[in-house]
Design a protein around this nucleic acid. Structure first.
Lengths: 339, 339
DNA sequence: TTGTAAGCGTTATCAT
DNA sequence: ATGATAACGCTTACAA
């Protein structure tokens, strides 16, 4: 079936394309009768504007781009949910790309989105991202950019995140308050800010409570900061530090990996080893024992980041200069059975 | 920073836009020297084509649309992963929309994608979708459409799915082979094909093995076919049918809800009640006891559906008529501890 | 080998 | 109140 254009309507009525366009957009300078006739034919022919033409003309696509490390992750899928929800509410469409934790892909994808002329970009940086020319390129093109979750402080744009250090500090302080002393940390990659922040929170909490920081209790998650890491690190931990009494894991996934290892090897949680997670991935409420963790407002993060982005896009349109915001979303401890 | 256009390059070199365009696309009928000069300037000015203009001209967007019930679901996030991966490989971008199980949203979103002039559409239908004019509209516009997972048989387009009935039949047969006799089913919404198919598989397996089908052992999941449903149905089940010995749940999420209820109430799995899930959501390997379930190839489903779609898009371009495929992906039983 | 010009479907300015 | 026309940036048939 042929798609109706303005021209078709114009021909049908024997008037000009210009008038049709104006009629459809309810301009004041067009006769009521013609307006109605146009509307009628438009409905009859099932007209809807070709967005490609509109986009080219108005230089706006009503589309935003999102680059995240992965979609297969409860946290990120919640964020995406929030992004799509908020964007759709305001009439924007969302293109999603996955960097798969690779810097070169992230750069490539920024270019794809720029070529696509998206109105704005939302990003959570890959763990490998240690240079930022691609982000600067976005800014130099005057395309609004909002970083969330895995951000880079040195880039001057709006950011939405949690206070990872504080959250980690609170979690570890809680462990200490419950009497745990040999507290291990399964940390994330060395590069991303969030993993360093959580590590710092862990370390500071120990020192502030008079427990000497012991690097041999810190285990690195190499393998994507994932379930596997938790499992293998738990194994190593028990072998190398049998006197450990608790673990603060960078992520629920890692914590759950550790729990699995403990369950399989008859190590009692929390009696032998307590486990503290991070993210409040909903599955953490379902594992046995249920995981004590830090709630991270994923959905809200998506919504807020998108709100800010769309707002900056609107300001941009009016050429109003905009002040970048840095929003820190509150976290809270979710106490369950694992410590 | 101003964005470079063909005109800029043309001006810089004092040649025509047409020549620049051809040079960049490596047309044979352009002088080697000019070609090189153009390439050089293009690189210097950081040229990359305005896709909006390209799209309008070529009537292709190199973008596909995806409409799914939700992104916050392990199965769908895996599918999305596969879709994005495959699409990106072939140079396509992906717009994702969530119907949130609402028919009116699904319809609206189809229109959004059509207006956006996506080259093709991938859909998993909402549970509420019981009319299909919106799908027919897509086809009448000659836009390739591929349905996956939650499909509608009457629509003539390619489909990718699993054999839900067979998979359910196998699962229930396995339960029977292990000696279970009072087998309950927590079924999904009455409308979607997959939930009816799984129900049919359950019923047939019973009857083929000489067990009378007992409707009072079938519980409906109203609440989105979710964790909650499993929990509350398990509670009801034990109250109403204390002699039950096993459950076949429509989904891992539902199964895990039931497991939680049983764990909390000291009902032993599988000794008191065995539980069989569906999907092999990765969390099912981590709960205690680990869930026996049906593996559903989610990632592969995304990849295959996208392959078919992109293929149809290419054929469409060449005006080659295409034959719709119906691919049935294999499932398998994953035996763990819950039965 | 290069350039001219039409066209994709809109929007918006300026005449009429 | 309506219409002719240019423009958005690119592709491509055709002319030079």
């Amino acid at each position: 079936m042929k798609v109706t254009t303005l021209k078709d309507i114009a021909n049908e009525l024997g008037i000009s394309v210009a008038t049709v366009s104006k009629a459809l957009k309810d301009y004041p300078d067009v006769n009521k009768d013609t307006k109605e006739k146009v509307l009628q034919i438009a409905r009859k022919l099932n007209y809807s504007p070709n967005q490609l033409a509109v986009n080219l003309r108005t230089k706006q696509t009503k589309t935003i781009g999102v680059i995240i490390p992965t979609t297969v992750h409860h946290f990120f899928s919640k964020v995406i949910d929030g992004i799509i929800e908020e964007a759709e509410k305001k009439g924007y469409l969302v293109i999603i790309l996955q960097s798969s934790e690779k810097l070169f892909l992230e750069k490539l994808q920024v270019n794809l989105l720029l070529d696509k002329r998206v109105d704005g970009i939302l990003m959570s940086l890959s763990n490998k991202t240690n240079e930022f020319v691609h982000l600067k390129k976005v800014l130099s093109r005057n395309i609004p950019l909002v970083l969330f979750d895995k951000i880079e402080p040195s880039i001057s744009c709006s950011k939405v995140r949690i206070d990872d250090k504080k959250a980690a500090y609170e979690a570890v302080s809680y462990l200490i308050s419950k009497g745990y002393k040999k507290i291990s940390h399964f940390r994330g990659d060395l590069n991303p800010k969030i993993s360093n922040d959580r590590f710092e929170g862990y370390r500071e909490a120990l020192e502030d409570h008079g427990i000497t920081y012991d690097p041999s209790l810190v285990y690195l998650c190499n393998n994507n900061t994932d379930f596997e890491d938790g499992y293998t690190n738990a194994k190593k931990l028990i072998r190398e530090n049998p006197e450990v009494d608790s673990i603060f894991a960078i992520t629920d996934l890692v914590a759950i990996g550790a729990i699995k290892y403990f369950n399989e090897n008859n190590i009692k949680i929390p009696d032998d080893v307590a486990v503290f997670g991070f993210s409040n991935w909903f599955m953490s409420s379902v594992v046995s024992p249920a995981l004590t963790t830090v709630h991270q407002p994923a959905h809200q993060m998506g919504v807020v980041a998108t709100e800010i982005l769309l707002n900056e896009i609107e300001l941009n349109k009016e050429n109003t200069p905009c002040i970048h915001k840095e929003v820190i979303l509150p976290t809270k401890l979710i106490l369950r059975e694992s410590c």
